[in-house]
Computed example of a mutant assay.
Amino acid sequence: MSSGVSGLLLVVAVALVDAEGRVLVQQRPPGKPMAGLWEFPGGKVEPDEVPEAALTRELAEELGIAVETRALIPIAFASEGLGARHLLLLLYVAREWAGTPEPRHASALQWVRPTEMRALTMPPADVPLVDALKRLFAGTKA
Rank of each mutant, 00 (worst) to 15 (best):
A84S: 15
F77P: 03
K141T: 10
A138M: 14
G81K: 15
R57S: 02
E102W: 11
E68V: 09
L136K: 10
L63C: 06
L59H: 02
G83L: 11
V45G: 07
A71E: 14
V12K: 01
R57N: 07
L90F: 04
E52H: 10
I65Q: 11
R113L: 15
A76N: 09
V14Q: 02
V67Y: 00
T56M: 01
S107W: 05
L16V: 04
L59F: 03
L109Q: 08
E96F: 12
L24T: 01
A138F: 09
P29D: 11
P29M: 10
W97D: 08
L82I: 07
T140C: 02
L63R: 01
D48H: 14
E52I: 08
R135Y: 11
F77T: 08
D48Q: 14
L129R: 10
H86K: 07
A94R: 04
D48V: 07
A66D: 15
A125T: 11
G36E: 09
L55P: 00
A138K: 14
I73N: 12
G36N: 08
V67F: 01
M117I: 05
A132Q: 08
A54H: 08
G21P: 04
P29W: 07
G21I: 05
A98D: 12
R95C: 09
A132M: 12
P124V: 06
V14N: 00
P29K: 13
E20R: 08
E39T: 09
L37F: 13
D131L: 13
L37I: 09
G36H: 09
A125M: 08
F40M: 09
E68D: 15
T115S: 15
A13I: 02
S79W: 11
K32S: 14
L72M: 11
S79G: 06
L129N: 07
E52W: 04
A78R: 09
A71T: 12
L16S: 05
A15K: 00
A106D: 06
W111C: 06
Q27C: 10
A66W: 12
T100Q: 14
P124M: 11
L129Y: 08
P128E: 11
A54W: 04
P51A: 04
G81E: 08
G81S: 13
W111V: 06
L88I: 11
R135I: 05
I65C: 02
W111H: 03
L37S: 10
P101H: 09
K134W: 13
L82S: 05
E52F: 05
V67S: 00
T115I: 05
L59E: 00
A108C: 04
E102L: 15
G83T: 10
Q26P: 00
L16C: 04
G99A: 06
L37C: 14
A132S: 12
K134N: 15
V130L: 13
